[in-house]
């Protein structure tokens, strides 16, 4: 099973680093100023967003969003 991106919205500060680094362009900053996933099924699990997140807000989870 491939792991996919999960965002902890409490921790996110909306810096936008994950948005520019995502190779599939499936992350965006929403109206609340936090990162959110638009099409989660497209995630390839490269973990670029996870390793580059300065606020420890991104981790990889399974299909249901469980870690």
């Amino acid at each position: 099973m491939k792991l996919k991106v999960v965002i902890d919205r409490k921790m996110c500060k909306g810096c936008g680093i994950c948005v520019v680094l995502c190779p599939k362009k499936i992350l965006k900053i929403d109206e609340e100023g936090k990162a959110s996933v638009t099409e989660r099924q497209e995630c390839i699990g490269c973990r670029q967003c996870e390793f580059h997140c300065p606020d420890f807000a991104i981790l990889m989870g399974d299909d249901d969003g469980q870690l």
């Binding site: 921790m11 810096c15 680093i17 997140c53 420890f56």
Partner: peptide, 12 residues
Amino acid sequence: PTMWCPGCGNGI
């Protein structure tokens, strides 16, 4: 969350 500004490299 940490006291660092959004996008600060220290978190990484």
